[in-house]
Amino acid sequence: MRGLRYGAAALAVAASAALAAACGIAGASESSVAHKTKLVIGVNKDQPGLGTQQPDGSYQGFDIEIARQIARFMHAHDVEFKTITSATRETMLRNGSVDLVVGSYSITPERKTQVSFAGPYYVAHQSILVRAADGGRVKTVHDLAGRKVCQVPGSVSFPRVTKERGVPAVAVSASGYKDCLDALTTGRLDAVSTDDLILAGLYAQNQRGGGPALRLVNAPFSDEPYGVGIKQGDVDGCEAVNKAITQMYQQGIPAKLLQAQFGSSGLDFTSTVPQFEGCE
């Protein structure tokens, strides 16, 4: 009889302890991407070499491979890709349509007020692509003075040349960087200046298509840290992505991916892990 009474008391203690413990766990981030087995990753569909969507709906490119590797090292078995644009990526991260964004997404202080960033997984540099015939004359950004340079609306690359470096280049508008490539090969403009990985992608595409010889000028004049966008405040998820990026670099994977994707352009790659932004 008394034993039962003890049992009831012990039960009450255990129940209240369990209740309180449950409250404590609920405080931890249950929505973190750190422990998800399926990741939805937002990527670009129209950047040659970085992220392009094939006619069958699949995606390929450097960003896509990096996204797959990050998911692999985070032990996510299932990866789904969704197309993002510069206009939608912050919203899609915030409303949970995508868990991560891997799509040449430069980390800037303004964007950091809206989303968090893991990584960068690569630091690209703004550089210049010209026709091979002009290779001897265009060696640095200053040599773009007076030349016709591609300007893509919404991209910061052209203002970087004219406003930041103060080089009086002549603007020639294009709808996107694929369009810039056509204009460069047909002689409508003299140079395309943007992130070296995008230029290397254009270079490889032109080479595959049998276009005229081009040259990628190895004169980087800016740092563009490509981050992995993640919902603001998901510190555990951000740390897990950083750990995945570190492990990926320790196994030498990005160097192989870069070589496979852009090797033909003669671009100088960095094969060591970039400096992270920090998750808090």
Binding site: P109, V141, P159, K163, E164, R165, A219, F221, S222, D223
Partner: peptide, 23 residues
């Protein structure tokens, strides 16, 4: 010099960010 100037600007902006076209 170009790279070092750009990197100086980006580091300065890490310490204190203000939107700016150039240094």
């Amino acid at each position: 010099a170009d790279t070092y100037e750009q990197v100086f600007q980006s580091k300065s902006q890490t310490v204190l960010y203000l939107k700016a076209d150039n240094l």
